[in-house]
Structure formats: C-alpha cells, structure tokens
C-alpha cells in the first residue's frame, strides 16, 4: 500500500518538475539574460522605464478588471437563480455548453453579429437606426471577452451556493431575518470562496488576452498579450517576451494572494 502511494507521488512530482518548475525556471532565466547570454536586469529596467510597456500594463489590468467586474455582476444573480431551480444540473449544462466550442469559432461568430451588415445592425435597422460601428471598439472587445469568460465565473459561484445548507437558510428565516438580511448576512458570506475562485479564473486569463484584441478589437485595444505575441513571433526577442511573462506571473501570484481564502478570519467573524 505504501509503495503504491509512493508510486503515485513520483508521477506527480515528475509532472510538476517537468511541466511547471522547469518551464518557469527557463522563463525566469530568459528574462534575466541578454541576447549574448549574460546575466542582466536590463530587460526589467527597460520594461519599467518604457512608457509604452507601462501603459500597456495599465491597459491589461484595466480591461481585466472591467471584464471581471462585468462577469461578476452578471454571474452572481445568474448562479443564485440557477441554484434555486428544480432542474439545476440541466440549466447549468446550458451555461457550460459554450465552453465546449472552440474559442476561435465563438470569436468569428461575434464578427458575424457585430459587423456592419451583421445581425445586430440589421436588428437596430428595423427601428430605423443607421448602422453603427460596433466592431473594433473597446466595448465590443469587453463584450466578447466577458461572454467568453462568464461560464468560468458562474461555475464556482454556483458550486459554492449549492453547497450552502438549506437548513441554515430556514434557520435564518425562523430567527426573524427577512430575505434581504438572509442574503446579505448568510448567503453572500458563505458563497465568498466561490466568488473568489471565480474572480481568479476570470481575472488571470483576462490579463493576457491577445487574439480577441486583434480580431474584435482591431488592435485598437493593446494589452500585454499583444506585446508577448509580437516579441516571440515577430522580433524573436525571447528575453523581453519572457520578462513580460515573468511580470504577468508575479501579477497573477499577487491576485491569488489577495483573493485567497482566509480561513482564520472567517472563523473569527463567526465567533463574534
């Protein structure tokens, strides 16, 4: 039995080492070396002294924040509603269904919807409104990205809501809390872990979106993803590309730390 456990551990450790530790180490190494292979901090210096990169960083964080906020505002009520429904697994399946479709296909579908003679413009045309420029705008970029990220926000919130003991809700009503108080004092705090992991799984990938910035945003929305794509594919400056990669990893770790579950504080609040 013990041997079996050890065997599983070996596989896991190997996997971690090969596909997590080594790549990150290589990335870090690339970011800390120059073209000629010397150790240097120059890449980081030029990153933080370049107005272009800093503005791009700001853009990335701003759009990721916006996308997270929008998905959260839509997802929480949706997840709550889903958790109250009778056939909730079925409705949940409908929410998850779009994630089975390739990202590129979904993006192209939006091109059909948003283009000059697309569905959206024909629809407003029915009311006599002339065609609007919908593609290649900030809002279309945020719309499409939010659409793509929404299932990843709904799912963890739904799971958290679903795990709340129904008896607790009944108890709260018995003790005289109205629906609003029950929601605010009981359901929302208890579903916080779901919200946090939803925020993580939306905010982090949104930081480095790149394909949508070009296809839908027409390169009018520039994020760090655009820069990484260019540095690796066009100019082949892997060192600078890795530097941005390392900075993104740091930003992601920061997000994880900020939104991580603080078990102790929850207990303390419970003790009050």
């Amino acid at each position: 039995m013990k041997k079996g456990k050890l065997f599983f551990a070996v596989l896991y450790v190997l996997w971690l080492a090969l596909f997590v530790v080594v790549p990150i180490a290589l990335l870090l190494f690339q970011s800390l070396t120059s073209e000629s292979g010397q150790l240097t901090l120059n890449n980081f210096v030029s990153y933080f002294s370049s107005g272009t990169y800093l503005r791009m960083t700001f853009n990335s964080i701003f759009y990721a924040f916006l996308i997270t906020l929008i998905t959260l505002v839509i997802s929480y009520p949706t997840a709550y509603l889903l958790s109250q429904l009778k056939n909730r697994q079925f409705w949940l399946l409908l929410v998850i269904l779009p994630t089975w479709i390739n990202l590129l296909l979904k993006t192209y579908a939006f091109i059909g919807l948003l283009s000059r003679d697309g569905t959206a413009n024909s629809f407003i045309g029915l009311f006599g409104i002339s065609p609007q420029q919908l593609l290649f705008t900030d809002s279309s970029f945020v719309l499409v990205s939010s659409y793509i990220e929404i299932p990843f926000m709904i799912l963890p919130i739904f799971n958290a809501l679903n795990e709340i003991d129904r008896d607790l809700v009944q108890a709260s009503r018995d003790l005289g809390a109205n629906s609003w108080q029950t929601l605010w004092r009981l359901i929302i705090p208890l579903s916080m872990p779901g919200v946090k992991s939803g925020v993580q799984s939306v905010f982090i990938p949104s930081l480095s979106l790149f394909m949508i910035t070009r296809l839908i945003g027409g390169n009018r929305v520039i994020t760090l993803g655009t820069a990484i794509e260019e540095l690796f594919l066009t100019t082949q400056n892997w060192h600078m590309g890795s530097t941005i990669g390392v900075i993104l990893i740091i930003a992601m770790v920061a997000t994880m730390v900020i939104t991580r579950e603080r078990k102790k504080s929850v207990l303390r609040r419970g003790g009050k």
């Binding site: 091109i111 283009s115 000059r116 003679d117 420029q133 593609l135 290649f136 070009r214 296809l215 945003g217 027409g218 390169n219 009018r220």
Partner: peptide, 15 residues
C-alpha cells in the same frame, strides 16, 4: 479603423 492580420480579407469582402 483597425490593424489586422489575414482577417483583413474577410473584412474587406464584407465591406
């Protein structure tokens, strides 16, 4: 209006 890769073909065709 936009800076595009090969999608430019589709967008020009769609006017």
């Amino acid at each position: 209006k936009a800076i595009l890769d090969d999608e430019i073909v589709m967008y020009m065709v769609q006017e």
